[in-house]
Design a protein around this nucleic acid. Structure first.
Lengths: 144, 144
DNA sequence: ACTCATTGTAATAACATGATTTACAATGAG
DNA sequence: CTCATTGTAAATCATGTTATTACAATGAGT
């Protein structure tokens, strides 16, 4: 059981824009070839990132730009942009109300798990696009 | 995007066993009626919990017992018992090797995300079955 | 030894969700 | 006006989860 492609794809899109803006026109087709995924997915994701105020997309002419400095864009924002705001885990919605465990499980377990989710979001908030870009560059250097 | 039922179901199973062992025979049908789910799911989950050394199940006669003290059973063990040991997120497996971002994204993002996953598991390790049982009992008391 | 409720497990179906693909109107710089 | 591109809808495919049915194996109780 894993989270979907969406957040990693969004990260890769933003990294490509950060790295190639000004060098290449970062169209959905261009980005799609880096991720190796369908351009429609890129356009949808780009739409979510635009709605979240992270990028602006030039309709018609094509290409996307970052709105904020990579040091100001966190993984938390990216995650929130592309994922629903919902619980991390799916707790049974119709447990038996006659069972003392069943009638309290949602509240009790839900409380504990929401704390865990918040910790995860805190961790995400500490990782910036600039960090990732830096790691990409370091990895590139050590590649030769 | 959420994790599946499995871990919450496993938690509820263990809570019911802890609460009702000695009072009722905790058969898969009994447990299924608390969770309001199919008994086969219970039996499969119970099998995973047995394999993880958390419960023992009486084949033939029926019923399950905890092998360990609820204070010694953590959410981490329960999570590991029922979920694959895999990455939290699904990073594109075939990114473009000609793109400097594509050819490093797995390593760079994977590293960051594995740290986050480990933090999540650490959080889980701090929550015991006894904690949850206690919360259930408290919630029950405040219910009247 | 027999009974019978129960477990363990396989197989299948039903369902939900994610990803792919095709298609096309709307956009906007040149 | 043109044309590459975006934004979006719809249909399809793939995959994973949950539900359901079925039945052999188990083992305590009689």
């Amino acid at each position: 059981m894993q989270f979907s492609f969406r957040m990693p794809v969004a990260v890769q899109i933003l990294l490509c824009i950060a790295k190639f803006d000004g060098v290449f026109k970062t169209t959905s087709t261009f980005l799609a070839s880096s991720v190796n995924i369908n351009p429609v997915i890129i356009r949808k994701t780009l739409g979510q990132l635009k709605a979240a105020g992270l990028v602006e997309v030039a309709a018609g002419v094509g290409g996307a730009k970052l709105v904020k400095d990579p040091r100001e864009i966190t993984l938390q924002e990216i995650f929130n942009a592309v994922e629903e705001d919902e619980d991390l885990f799916h707790i049974q919605e119709n447990p038996n109300p006659k069972c003392p465990v069943g009638r309290n499980i949602q509240q009790v377990l839900g409380n504990k798990l929401s704390v865990v989710k918040n910790h995860m979001l805190d961790d995400f908030a500490k990782i910036t696009l600039a960090d990732l870009l830096n790691d990409i560059n370091t990895a590139e250097e050590s590649r030769q």
